[in-house]
C-alpha cells in the first residue's frame, strides 16, 4: 500500500476542549481504495476526529490533509470531495427516493443530466425501480441504508465517511451493505468506517483503535489478532479498551 495514492494524511493532530484533550497526537495515513476501520469505545474521541477529517471542525494543532487539501484553509474543496453517511442523519424522510437523489446530486454540484444518468444507474443497481417514487419514511431501514450509502458516493468522491452505517439492520442486510462497500472500494473510493460490530472490523484492510483520545493500535486485522494473542477482533478490542 505504501506506493498507493495517499488520501488522508494526519500528523500530530490534537483537539482540546478547555482542559480536556479529545484527540491526542494522532498520526496515520489512509490510501486510495482502502477500507479503513476507525474503532474505539464510546467517548474515545472518534466523532471529534471524524468531524475534523470532514472539515466540520478545526484541530487545535497538527497537520491534516484530505485528498491533498488542507484542513485549515480548504474546507470547501474537502467537502466537495468527500461523502458522508451516518445512521442518524442520512436522507430526508419526507422526500421520495428520486427527490433525495436529485437533492444530494445538486448539493454536490452534479449537472442535471449527470444526476439523471447516475440516479438511474443507482436505482437499477439497488433494484429499487418499483419504489423510486416512495417516500423515504415508507421504505424499510435496510433499503434506506443501502440508498444512503449509494447517494453518499453518487458524486464519486475520493473518500466516504461512514459513521456506524449498519446499526440495527438484520444480519443479511448488514452483509449486503458490506458488499456495496467492497464494490465502491474496488472502484477506488476510500472507505473510512466506524462500527461496533467486531466481525465487520475484520472486513477492513486496516484498523485503528482509539482509547481515551489516543490511537493505541493500528494495523491490519490479522496482524492485530496475532499481536494481541487473540482469536478475533472482539478479544483484541476488549484487551486494549480494558487495558488488560
Amino acid at each position: 500500500m505504501k506506493d498507493a495514492e495517499r488520501i488522508i494524511k494526519v500528523r500530530k493532530l490534537y483537539k482540546k476542549f478547555g482542559s480536556f484533550t479529545a484527540n491526542k497526537d494522532l498520526n496515520f495515513d489512509v490510501y486510495k481504495g482502502e477500507i479503513f476501520g476507525f474503532l474505539g469505545a464510546n467517548g474515545a474521541g472518534k466523532t471529534t476526529a471524524m468531524k475534523i477529517l470532514c472539515g466540520l471542525s478545526k484541530p487545535t494543532s497538527g497537520e491534516v490533509k484530505i485528498a491533498n487539501y488542507d484542513i485549515y484553509t480548504q474546507t470547501n474543496e474537502i467537502k466537495k470531495n468527500i461523502g458522508y453517511m451516518s445512521q442518524k442523519f442520512s436522507l430526508y424522510e419526507d422526500l421520495t427516493i428520486k427527490e433525495n437523489i436529485r437533492l444530494f446530486g445538486g448539493i454536490y454540484g452534479l449537472s442535471k443530466s449527470e444526476i439523471e444518468k447516475r440516479g438511474k444507474e443507482l436505482i437499477k443497481h439497488l433494484e429499487l425501480e418499483g419504489a423510486k417514487d416512495k417516500l423515504i419514511k415508507d421504505i424499510p431501514l435496510g433499503w434506506k441504508q443501502k440508498l444512503a450509502f449509494s447517494i453518499a458516493v453518487l458524486h464519486e468522491p475520493d473518500i466516504v465517511f461512514l459513521d456506524e452505517p449498519t446499526g440495527g439492520v438484520d444480519p443479511i442486510t448488514r452483509r449486503q451493505f458490506w458488499k456495496l462497500i467492497y464494490e465502491a472500494a474496488g472502484k477506488g473510493v476510500t472507505i473510512f468506517v466506524t462500527t461496533h460490530y467486531m466481525d465487520e472490523a475484520e472486513y477492513c484492510n486496516r484498523l485503528s483503535i482509539m482509547v481515551d483520545g489516543e490511537i493505541v493500535a493500528l494495523d491490519d486485522p490479522l496482524s492485530l489478532i496475532k499481536q494481541y494473542k487473540s482469536s478475533n477482533m472482539d478479544e483484541v478490542f476488549l484487551k486494549l479498551v480494558r487495558k488488560i
Partner: peptide
Amino acid sequence: TGVDSVSR
C-alpha cells in the same frame, strides 16, 4: 444499541 462492545 450503539454502545461499544466493552460497555455492552
